[in-house]
Design a protein around this nucleic acid. Sequence first.
RNA 1: GUGGUUGUAGCUCAGCUGGUUAGAGCGCUGGAUUGUGGUUCCAGAGGUCGCCGGUUCGAACCCGGUCUUCCACCCCA
Length: 459
Amino acid sequence: MAQKPSIPKGTRDFSPAEVAKRNYIIQIIKKHFKTYGFQPIETPSFENFDTLMGKYGEEGDRLIFKILNSGDFISKVDDVTYSSKKSGSLTPKISDKALRYDLTVPFARYVVMHQNEIDFPFKRYQIQPVWRADRPQKGRFREFYQCDADVVGANSLLQEVEFVQLYDAVFTDLGLKGTTVKINNRKVLSGIAEVIGAKHLLIDFTVALDKLDKIGEEKVKAEMLEKGISENAIAKAQPLFGMSGSASEQLGQLKDLLTDSEIGLEGVAELEEILNTIDTIGLQSAKLELDVTLARGLNYYTGAIFEVAAPDGVKMGSIGGGGRYDDLTGIFGLKDVSGVGISFGLDRIYLVLEELDLFPKSLDISLDVLCLNFGDREGLASLKLVSALRNLGLRADLYPTAAKFQKQLKYANKRGVPYVILLGEKELTEGTFVVKNMETGDQKAYTLENATEFAAEIN
RNA sequence: GUGGUUGUAGCUCAGCUGGUUAGAGCGCUGGAUUGUGGUUCCAGAGGUCGCCGGUUCGAACCCGGUCUUCCACCCCA
């Protein structure tokens, strides 16, 4: 009995129309990556277990897809570990490989392994799928694409500025107006944690703070309390909850709050410089916004943090994110190499463009011209004509069988082919072919020797 | 990982307090129309009611389990 086919939860098949749209987005992102001087690399879809584990926090470890070892892996586990039934200690013994969780950590690994062949500063881009063992939701999949651009070996804040411009360039080109690039700085968050006396609870503090616009002040404070941050400390952080006004006003408030924190003031200065530079240069369609509550869970970020929100009114999580990480390669043994990078969430951008109907209509056309098939004799002449059109760069096809006229036209109609060629007995004897415009219904004859004339007209 | 939700024809969905042969629209196939598609008309095909088990004389409907969908949390692109 045939089994009912299915695909794993959170994965998808892509139809020709969907692939066309996805390629359209990728091609635009790639174009801008290249014009900004980034070079492509690719890394394996799975890495060593130890390369990935521990880089994304406790939650991240849970969401990494582990690959079971080959062979009789269970017999190699010692009895104590086996009978303890603890996944945490058993997993490393039965799995030594895991699917890529993001593109940043594999890149850091790549940089360390190839440090002697890389010219720093190294700007690379990478467009590949990543996997997360998450529970699917709208815009959240277990297999999805990230499009990353990172620079390593450059400390200059100009890199941050450049990434804001890059975001703006890509979203402008995609016709996606009104995106917001939110920026914050980990040093500011560290500074705040420091001055309120919750330095050791930085992660818990930022994770809670990050939810401010979503769950409100009271609930954020409740969560902080629950995580062990004292009432006194929360009171000291009070200015954060009421931050408002322009970026420079907010920066002023931050300076007051952080007067006793060297690192905090450093963060403020960095933000100030990035915001001022962008202000001077200007952006096309995006806006850059300071958001002191922006945290981002990934704990390898040390400086600037970015997150991109879709235009107002589109219900979608962030469509991009990134930041600076000063010591990611340090974990793999290469010290003092700073990196900054951003990521575009292809699958979410797709959903947003779809919702706002921003895909070019031309993407629906997968074939420029279809030649109808009238039989063997006409078919031969048609095949020659189609070959000639293909050589001219047109997407051309010959209907494979001499099916009923109506059936062939219906097929052309459903494929959305704009032009159909009729080359029947009459045309064959006259040495011509007739082109039918499927939209208007108009028909026009051309001589067979002069296929270029037709090709030129529709281009 | 926690809580909830969904599943009936290729698609979108009806289907009453459990009751005979489970319906509609769209799509599909054929015909009206053997050189003219989109519109119209006619006819037809297509369903283990997600899967497994239970209750019942009888289950698409009630119960349990499981998978899937979507949502909230966690977290994130």
